[in-house]
């Protein structure tokens, strides 16, 4: 589904990704771990198409399409969802409006009609209930004045509504208390399916207690230095990232 080959990227003149390769198939859950500055968030941003990140080499294909050729909104319409580490506040634009506009953009792209308002509200309320969100959130400004936990739940709500084929969740666990973490994890697990792939970008192993990955990759200095199954995450937890760095340098 997603094929990254020898990807190199820089931001503000600094090389961050230095030949990263990763292949993700439908139905899989991948966890990408690594110390701060290893390039985890950069990878997520590059796949989503942020302008600030300049791709200097390699290729990214998604469902056999050259992703790097596409505008961010077209990537989204193709089915890529990025859960932001720092969800953006957009004052005055209400959540429901953004959500509906996003769903309809996707539906239009697929040649489907616009979602019925009634159906939309029903769906949104269901998903919110599952995430433990107050339905009032729908009428508030996008992330405006939300707490950290509320913002992250809101990201998961958007994901649940948009039903992407590939969801990349960037540090979705950061800043969450245990209840919020469980709610978020339940939301992600509910979305696991044979047609869908999920990439979790995380610093800590904690999230993986709740969302069990099929593969774990460790990033260091812009490259994947180690891949394995979920036991790799536990090993990392125990030995710390220095262990990986040493392994990488060895």
């Amino acid at each position: 589904m997603l094929d990254i080959k020898d990807l190199k990227a820089r931001v503000a003149g600094n090389d961050i990704l230095n030949g990263l390769s990763l292949s993700v198939q439908a139905g899989e859950v991948h966890a990408i771990m690594g110390p701060n500055g290893s390039g985890k968030s950069t990878l997520a941003q590059v796949v989503a198409g942020h302008d600030d990140y300049e791709v200097t080499g390699g290729s990214v294909t998604f469902k056999d399409k050259d992703l790097l050729e596409l505008e961010p909104e077209d990537r989204a319409r193709e089915g890529i969802f990025l859960g932001f580490q720092y969800p953006v506040e957009i004052p005055g634009v209400n959540n429901a409006y953004l959500l509906k506009a996003a769903m309809n953009a996707r539906r239009e792209h697929r040649g489907e009609g616009e979602i019925d308002s009634f159906e939309f509200l029903k769906l949104a309320r269901e998903k919110m209930a599952a995430l433990g969100m107050d339905p009032k959130f729908l009428n508030r400004g996008v992330n405006e004045g939300f707490s950290g936990g509320e913002k992250k739940r809101n990201e998961i709500l958007q994901m649940a509504m948009l039903e992407p084929e590939l969801a990349i969740l960037d540090e979705t666990d950061s800043g969450l208390d245990i209840d919020a973490l469980k709610a978020v994890a339940a939301g992600v697990n509910a979305l696991r399916s044979p047609e869908r792939a999920i990439v979790l970008v995380t610093h800590y192993q904690r999230l993986l207690d709740y969302i069990e990955p099929d593969f774990v990759h460790v990033l260091s200095q812009g490259r994947i230095v180690r891949s394995g199954d979920k036991t790799l995450a536990l090993e990392l937890e125990e030995k710390g990232y220095d262990w990986v760095r040493e392994a990488a340098n060895a």
């Binding site: 302008d51 961010p72 932001f84 953006v88 634009v93 953004l98 953009a105 958007q158």
Partner: peptide, 29 residues
């Protein structure tokens, strides 16, 4: 902000629609 635009675009909304959306939000009051 570039971040607001990117956020909307990542949700599949075109740049122009995103601008309109943000401007309308700005004027809501």
């Amino acid at each position: 902000s570039a971040n607001q635009l990117f956020y909307c675009r990542q949700r599949g909304i075109s740049e122009e629609d995103a601008v309109n959306m943000i401007v309308n939000g700005f004027c809501k009051e």
